[in-house]
Design a protein around this nucleic acid. Sequence first.
DNA 1: TATAGTTTCAAACTCTCATTTGAACTTAAT
DNA 2: ATTAAGTTCAAATGAGAGTTTGAAACTATA
Lengths: 211, 211
Amino acid sequence: MGLQRPPDQNSETVERMIKAAEELFSERGHENVSLRQLTSHAGVNVAAVNYHFGSKELLVEAVFENLVQRVCEQRELALEKLQPGESLMLEEIVRSFVDPYLGDGNEKQGALLARFLMRNRLYPTDGTRRVVSEYLDPMAKKYIAAFAQVCPNLSRQQLVWRYLFMTNTLAASSAGDNLSRRIGALSANSGNVELRERREAMIEFLVSAFR
Amino acid sequence: MGLQRPPDQNSETVERMIKAAEELFSERGHENVSLRQLTSHAGVNVAAVNYHFGSKELLVEAVFENLVQRVCEQRELALEKLQPGESLMLEEIVRSFVDPYLGDGNEKQGALLARFLMRNRLYPTDGTRRVVSEYLDPMAKKYIAAFAQVCPNLSRQQLVWRYLFMTNTLAASSAGDNLSRRIGALSANSGNVELRERREAMIEFLVSAFR
DNA sequence: TATAGTTTCAAACTCTCATTTGAACTTAAT
DNA sequence: ATTAAGTTCAAATGAGAGTTTGAAACTATA
């Protein structure tokens, strides 16, 4: 009968669409990727989006949720590994937060996540809010608790602020390749900036911001 | 003959359009404001946009340039007022940077600027890049020089990084009212967060990030 | 093999948007 | 008063987007 709610099956088609979406969204942002571009890049029919996800918006949210879930799992693991030892290092907490965000190798994951988080900041929807409150907020509380152990001089309120500023810095610094260009313009140096270098500078910045 | 380039006149119509654009853009972002909404809110005809600016994109860039110019002028003044005394305070430099950005009273200006800067980070165009290199970059060099005086222990490279992280934090923290909601979710406190409070917390954060 | 449910496909549909158009109106100079 | 340029207007245009459709292809079960 035409229009039925498809179950959450892991069909080949769905995976290909999500993969294509991650690639294209991380480059141009989901508002600049039409369904025709997306589906042709994935090698599936245009109608597949509405058939499998219901709408473009729901596809976007599925990709977002997918990614956030992945990152939060990695953070969970990294944070747990830190807890047992009593001597909790500030820098290691920051690293356990930043590393899963940026992912490995290329900067695509960080860029994608940054786009989503900025988008949620500027134009939140019910779906994106749900992802934040379901995955990010519980994780945030754990991090704030961890920071509280290392920074006993900061009040709970201050910790909340700084945690949020940290996430903002991370998101804003990962979005687009514009930062590298800007650094070239401001430094006397040559333009090219290494990824590793950027990551280390940011961690240094964040660590000092918690002191 | 139909299509001529109109000069930069300060006609009533142009002013009304820019004013309406600032209001609507700061609330919903320029991608979510159609020209019909914009012009009807301004009380002018739809065709006026293309007649006076050439296109929607050029109107957006004009609003952006307008705003950035204003903010940079205020920063210039505030920074100059600081220089004469030898005892340059880190916190005052940060304030001279933050205050013109956030504007006075309502948070509309900060939100508008944040949207533009994020947009430029995610989807830069020739026009927005021009505004950045023409207004923001020269200003940035002055600020980096000022920070260098107060933070002699930081290398030039570190100063550049931290300046950029500062701008990112500022932009990300000013965009949307989502931050307040998030704080409510993470604190045990009640949801409402004062503007002043937020501003002070951010300045505290930024100051500590430069130490 | 027959049948019912699921998935794919090309094509059409609908809607909104920025942009263009040509006439009407205003303004200022000759 | 006449003319020409600048400006405004309602209406049309056309491109591009997401979505829907109904038939065809596929898959599994009986």
